[in-house]
Design a protein around this nucleic acid. Structure first.
Length: 490
RNA sequence: GGGCUGGUAGCUCAAUGGUAGAGCAGUUGCCUUUUAAGCAAUUGGUUCUGGGUUCGAAUCCCAGCCGGCCCA
């Protein structure tokens, strides 16, 4: 190096670009190299045979995340999908030239290394490197090694950095992948068929939510992004698929919060010749098997309250109306006038819109005063009939439905119904809900019901919320790889 | 949409109206079993943006941009 070059030592990006240029000038282009691995880091660590030093050969690859340079030898760590593994690089093993090049590597570079396993004097299984290959140069520096990346905005916008430096995030988001995978396997084992139904719909049915609208140029029509999977999956029941499920994205054009992301994957399951009670068994089996096989425990810490949620015991079953009567201290709540209900709700500290229907006032009490307190798994049974127009009416109390809402950790985890299969009742319910807006009724769905849908139980499970629960996350953003944010400043 | 709160070196954070600092990272040396490796030296700043107050602003005020928490 000549003396009149500008000092770029403060600019890590420039220093790394210079190193890359030097490599290329020497005929080495890391971006045209590759490396054949034989093991992931965790598998390599398991391949070590106690006492057998330098007998097992492995090829591992990953991102350089720790460098401890001791002059003529270095201990470094690389990170791959399974975690980190330590490499020991000695000058007199790899040779002078390769060692000199190794000393020029930066934290963040991606390399492959071949060598033999041994245990250091402090007991860590380590690869004694015979040779290595740089396969990608990192031109930008990693965040700080002790504290990781703490700025929440950068964690969400540049999740890749969060995943490299924050082990907690890495583990939580990998756990999510295993949860979803387990759900699929669980259902497939029970003869459920996974299907895919349209995201672009001309009627956004199956739920009450504000949809996103988009436009199809060739057809010259607007479409809604779906807000629910329900009406298409029920068409599959009509078509003879007796057990179906879909894990599909729903889109709701509403607020963003700790519990809401505008796009979210939803599991919906439908089982012919079952009902909501069948769904209770299914969801309990699913959650307990997730606890057992994925988490390895039936006790989970609830991030909000710090309370321990126990999936192992009996799950509480309680009627919606009884919860309301208890919360209001009024055994005759459901025969009170609207004015009395408003007065009582306001006395409980709620702000009530006088335009609301009575069931909405009651449900405000449920969602604000009751649901957040239901930390242990609780089946809330027999919801009022106004809340779910797609469910069967309960025969003993026709003001309620054959449904439950499974609530855990203060969150609605899984609503399930005995599905309405009477096309005339369904039409009446739709019309009552639609009011003047007849356009919003999915006429083809009613047509399908008229062809005959078998009696069935159906259930929805929000995957994000399930993951919040099972990973004890504080926020939905912690379980979504790339949560929705306002576009960043340019 | 409202209230509170934050934005300072690549990252994590200090600096309470008076010369913008530290640790890590980087750079240069030393060190062939380290574990946040160690030792020595050292570079690095549009204090989010734009206005204002002031002799003087990272700090106070106003507006904006992007977050976080709570509420709707």
């Amino acid at each position: 190096m000549s003396d009149n070059l500008p000092d770029i030592s403060h600019d890590q990006h420039a220093v790394r670009r210079q190193k890359l240029a030097d490599l290329r000038a020497a005929g080495v282009d890391p971006f045209r190299a590759n490396f054949a691995t034989t093991h992931f880091s965790g598998d390599a660590l398991k391949a070590y045979v106690d006492g057998q030093e330098n007998t097992v050969t492995v090829g591992v690859a990953g991102r350089l995340v720790v460098i401890r340079d001791m002059g003529k030898s270095q201990f470094v760590k690389i990170l791959d999908q399974q975690g980190t593994i330590q490499l020991y690089v000695k000058k007199d093993v790899v040779g002078d030239e390769a060692y000199a090049a190794f000393k020029k590597l930066d934290l963040g570079d991606i390399l492959g290394a071949k060598g033999t396993l041994f245990k250091t004097k402090t007991g860590e299984v380590t690869v004694r490197v015979d040779s290595y290959t740089l396969v990608a140069k990192a031109l930008r520096p990693l965040p700080e090694k002790w504290h990781g990346l703490a700025d929440p905005e950068q964690v969400y916008r540049q999740r890749y950095l969060d995943l490299i430096v924050n082990e907690e995030s890495r583990k939580r988001l990998m756990l999510r992948a295993r949860i979803v995978s387990h759900v699929r396997r669980f259902l497939e084992d029970r003869h459920f068929l996974e299907v895919e139904t349209p995201v672009l719909q001309n009627v956004a049915g199956g739920a009450a939510a504000r949809p996103f609208v988009t436009h199809h140029n060739a057809l010259g029509v607007d479409f809604f992004l779906r807000i629910s999977l329900e009406l298409y999956l029920k068409r599959m029941l009509v078509g003879g698929y007796d057990r179906v499920f879909e894990i599909g994205r729903n889109f709701r054009n509403e607020g963003v919060s700790r519990k809401h992301n505008p796009e979210f994957p939803m599991l919906e399951v439908y089982q012919a010749y079952s009902d909501h009670r069948g769904m209770m068994t299914l969801i309990k089996d699913l959650l307990t098997s997730l606890c057992r096989d994925v988490l390895g425990t039936t006790k989970i810490k609830h991030a909000g309250s710090g309370e321990e949620i126990d999936f192992g015991g009996e799950w509480r079953e309680v009627k919606y109306k009884d919860l309301i009567r208890t919360a209001t201290g009024d055994a005759d709540w459901f025969s009170r006038s609207k004015a009395e209900k408003i007065a009582k709700a306001e006395a409980l500290g709620l702000s009530i819109n006088p335009a609301w229907e009575e069931f909405e006032i009651t449900n405000e009490i449920f969602s604000k005063k009751i649901e957040p307190t239901l930390i242990q798994p609780t089946f809330v049974m027999n919801l009022p009939k106004e809340l779910c127009p797609l469910a069967k009416i309960n025969q003993e109390d026709p003001t309620t439905l054959d449904v439950f809402e499974l609530t855990i950790g203060g969150m609605e985890i899984a609503p399930a119904y005995s599905e309405q299969n009477d096309p005339d009742v369904q039409r009446t319910m739709f019309e009552a809900q639609a009011g003047e807006d007849k356009q919003s009724i999915d006429q083809d769905f009613l047509n399908a019901l008229e062809h005959g849908m078998p009696p069935a139980g159906g259930m929805g499970v929000g995957i994000d919320r399930l993951c919040i629960l099972l990973t004890s996350a504080e926020s939905i953003r912690d379980v979504i790889l790339f949560p929705q944010l306002r576009p960043g400043a340019a």
